[in-house]
Structure formats: C-alpha cells, structure tokens
Design a binder for these strands. Structure first.
Lengths: 306, 306
DNA sequence: CGTAAATCGGTAAACGTTGACATAAATAGG
DNA sequence: CCTATTTATGTCAACGTTTACCGATTTACG
C-alpha cells in the first residue's frame, strides 16, 4: 500500500519540496559553521568533523566564515540570523563573544561552542583542557633539559593563547624555573607572522635552545626561520607545535606537537546541537564535555646541544 | 510610508521567514559545493573563492564532500538533488562524470564545472590550460639542464593528471628529449602516497636529478623523502610542485610550482552560476573561460650538480 | 475646482507540504 | 455472521510569505 506509493514516487522521480517541508516543520535543517582566519587544516578538520555527524541525516552544513568577530559581534549575529539556520557551531573566537551569545539566545537560535574559554556555563560546550595541554608540551621540553625556551603566542583574541601559556607557566613552576618574559613573542597563528617573530627570537642572545609555538603553522615557520639562519632542528634548536594538524606530519623534521581533537570536538558539537534541536536534550547532557589531548613526541625536539 | 514599516520591522526585530520565501520564489538560495579527497589547502581555496562571490548576497554555501564519485556518480546525484539546492559547483573529479551531469540536467539543477577535462561543451565551464601549465614547469626544469627527470602523477581518476603529463611530454619533445617511462610513478595527490613513491624514485639508479610532482603535497613529500635519504634539495635533486598551495610557501626550501588560480576559478564559477540562476544568462557567456596559470620559480629547483 | 495620477488599505490566492479528521472499505476475531 | 479493529480514501486548514487586484483616499497639476 505505502510500498506502491513509494514505487510511484520513484517512477516519477518525485522529490519532496524542501522549502515546503521547512515551512511547516518550522525547521530549515541547516546547521551553520562559523570560524575566523582559516588555517586551512583547522577549518577542514572542523568541517569534516561536523560533516561526519551530519551525513546520512537531514541536516546540511552551511559555512559562514567571518573575520574580525571581536570588533563587530552584532554583525556576525545578524548574518547568522539572516541565514535561516536551525543551529550554529561557533569556533573561536566567535564562541567567546557574549554579545553574540545574547543575540542568539534572544532570537532562539541554538548554538554549540567549540573550545570556548569564558562563560563556560552558557550553552552547549565542547572543549579540551588547554592548560593541561600546554603543560604537557612545556614539561616535555623542560624534561629534555631546555632552560632558555622561546615562546610564540597565538592571536591574543583567541583565548586559547592564554590557556596554553598558563599551562607552560605551571610546568615551569613545577620544574622550579620560570618563563623568561623577553623570550615571549606574539604571533597570530599564521605562518608569515610566525616566521617574522621566530627570526626575532632566534637572533636573541643568548639564543633560546627550544621554541614552543602555539600552533603548528607557526612552529613550521620557526623551523624555516632556523634553517634560514643556518641552524639545524633539533640539533641547534628544538621546536614544538600545537594542534597536530596536517603540516605537523608533512614538516621536516616531523613536529613534536599536542594533538587537539578538533574533528572529534566538531563531531560532538554537531551531535549535541542536533540532539537539542530534535528535542532529545537529555542526550546532550552534560552541557560541557572535555576531549582528551595527547602529546606527540616526534623528531623536532631533542636535548639541548651544550 | 515604507520607511515606517521598515522602522517597525527593526523595532520588533522581525526577520522574514526564509522557508516561506523559498517556497514562493521556488528558490532555496542555496549553492552546493562538491569535492573529493580534500587536500585541505585546495578545499579551502575553493571554498573561499566561492564564498567571496556569495557574501553580501542572498545565496548561502552548502558543502557536500563526497568520496569515490567515479564509482558511484548516481549516488552523488541523489545527494545533490535531495539537498534542495539552486545550483552546484562541481570540482574534479565530479565535474567529469557524464552520468552525474545527465542526472542534474534531467532534474534541472544548474551546475558549474571547475577544471573539467572532457565534454567541455557541457554546461558552464571554468578551466585552466593544464597542458600549457605542465609544459611550463617541465620546460623550466629542462632549461636548467636536467635530463633524468622523475615524475609523480596525481590520482588517475582526476583528468588533470593526464593533461599535465601531456604538457610535460610536449616540453620534452620540444627540447629534443623524451620522458623515461621507468621514472614515472603514480600517486594520488596525498602526502603519504607521495612520500612512498618518491622514495622509490630516488632509489632508482641512476638517480633522477629532478622530480616533477603533480601537486604541492606530493612535492613536499618528495623533499622529505630526499632528506630522509640524505639528499639535499635542490643541490642533489630539484623538486617542482603544482598548484601554488599554502604548503608550497611554507615548505623549506620554498617550492617551485605552477600557480593554479583555484580561488579565481571558484569565484568565476559561482558568479556565472548565479548569473544563470538569476536569469542573466547573457552575462554568463562565454560558456567556457580559461584562467591563466603562472610558473613560480622558487628555491627548490636549480641546475643539476654533475 | 476638476481630472489624472499616485498612494493607501485590505482581501485573497498561491507556493508544496503535513497533520488532523471524517468517512468508507477491508480484515480479523469470536 | 456480527462487531471490533485495521487500513484505505478524501477533504481541509495551516505554515509565512508574495503578488495581484479592487476600491478608497490622497496628492499633483493645469
């Protein structure tokens, strides 16, 4: 009986009109993904994680990159509200804009926050322990015997930068040392700026024997800067990154880094967003979930030469 | 009069219901983007190119990656038709599946093809001259004096691999030489496979003095393979890539490569797709457009040592 | 002041579904 | 065979817009 209908549907290749379905269901079955300043590998991981949850479901993923969120959060809010989404995945730094969260809540647009660093009680949160992750990579370098350690921070508008730095600080304190503030420079997570500040760091005298970069792109830049100064990695200087992005494996030498489970977090964020949308809110609990990081020791770190 | 209405709309912060608008306009204002096997940098370029055309317009971008298109083009067709799109941007190898194009035409789903290599008369086409691009990089290496040249092909299901190879062949012929078939190996555009086949190539005796890789990821893998064998680039072996993707600049030494205008092509494809959807078909003409490539000579190529 | 044009206010159909409901027909159980 | 239940068939309102249209009112212009 219903089989016949389905057969007829196939025969006429009838496809239900999605707009009409959306209209009556009061759902668009669209999930947004916002991010800023795309480090390609990060964006693709994020996207693939979310997509792996969405495939074989009704929901579709709309990508909405948006730059300079911190200076104009309301504009992003308008963009998101105009996009007719059912829910949105917020990557840093958008996930840390209270004004934006206010807007979304006022308009009842569901959201999930990926690695936020403030107001952790608000909305659905997936995170990793940035402090512990920072701690583990710094402890590794200290255990190798390094003392003069250069640090390349990420974009200050991303709160992850602070968390990771705090982790470094704790590791230094535990080892009975402290960070040399003259060896701390600020990047913005991009290769180009990373290269520039790494050069500054390596021209410092006495030269640092190790560099902790807050993402892999900047770590790779530091390796290039070292080579351009005639220094070998890890013989003359050790370099560690952060994220375990594709470049960390394709770099030479392969980067010691901390695996950031971006894919898994994006999957989880999408999963719980959908659970909330489909009214299975219980499944979304607990509101906050931490995903484990992992220190990956590869070829770019070694004991100092002297 | 209408000003008052707009003011009231703002005051009540009223946002028109997109589903209802779509229903009546018989438009979803959704553009799809399909691609396969995401080399992160390629995907991001593609996406950003399309997005840069879409922003400030009504259209939104839905990402629909799909693997193994060549073995199941109808499945991708179903996915696209079910997604409720107004139009779709087809990257390789989906853009070269006649069955898929047939389905889309039958269901009247507009499409634009990015760098297709067959049936170039069908639909909207944006392309580059792969043969000429392959020619230019091969000619460069030959002009440096290389004769034993290893070649790492891309995924055979991507027609670009053939076009680029044909360009190499022409350059060799013009120089009065020919490609040594024992020095041609097949990769799949990924780093890992690229690394493996590059090792094979470099263990060949006599060793090639230069390697032409059909994308940058594989070229970077070849550099890593060379270093792992104790060979310096470009002193012992020159390496050239293809695409001018981000890794080509962050690699060390920076890669000689051919700029593939992915961003521009994606912009153009989106532009002409929208022109067709909005009924400004005249603006979409000519149906086919070639974008210029550009040889970028950087640090990874030099004359052979001997 | 009178006519033509522009503006206003209101009603209604249409877009393609879904879901509720009512009625009619088929099937099952005792 | 009769009732109770399941299954089939059909009608209609609703979702939130847009577009067309009609009549009423205002404005512009000679």
């Amino acid at each position: 009986m219903r089989r016949k209908v389905k057969e007829a549907a196939v025969a006429l290749d009838y496809h239900p009109n999605i707009a009409a379905q959306s209209l009556i269901a009061r759902r668009s079955y669209l999930i947004g993904l916002t991010y800023e300043r795309p480090s390609p590998s990060y964006v693709v991981e994020l996207q693939n994680g979310a997509l792996s949850r969405l495939e074989n479901g009704r929901y579709r993923l709309v990508v909405l990159p948006f730059n300079h969120v911190t200076s104009r959060p309301e504009e992003l809010g308008k963009l998101l509200l105009r996009a007719g989404l059912d829910g949105v995945l917020l990557a840093p730094p958008a996930c840390d804009q209270p004004e934006l969260l206010d807007m979304l809540e006022r308009q009842k647009l569901a959201y999930a926050r990926i690695t936020p660093h403030r107001d952790l009680h608000r909305g659905v949160v997936v995170a990793m322990d940035e402090v512990a992750a920072g701690h583990s990579v710094a402890a590794h370098v200290l255990a190798l015997g390094h003392r003069r350690v250069g640090i390349i921070l990420g974009d200050p508008s991303h709160a992850a930068s602070k968390g990771r730095l705090e982790g470094y600080r704790q590791a230094f304190a535990e080892a009975g040392h402290s960070i040399d503030p003259t060896l701390v420079v600020t990047g913005d997570f991009t290769y180009d700026i990373g290269y520039r500040v790494a050069l500054d760091l390596l021209r410092h005298s006495p030269r640092p024997t190790a560099i902790l970069a807050q993402n892999d792109d900047m770590a790779v830049a530091a390796i290039a800067a070292a080579r351009d100064l005639g220094l070998a990695v890890p013989t003359d200087v050790s370099v560690a990154g952060f994220d375990n992005s594709e470049v960390s494996r394709t770099a030479w030498p392969q980067l010691t880094t901390v695996h950031q489970p971006v894919r898994e977090m994006a999957w989880d964020a999408a999963n719980r967003l959908i659970a909330a949308l489909d009214g299975k809110d219980e499944l979304a609990a607990p509101r906050r979930r931490d995903h484990p990081h992992e220190l990956l020791v590869r070829a770019s770190t070694a004991p100092p030469a002297e």
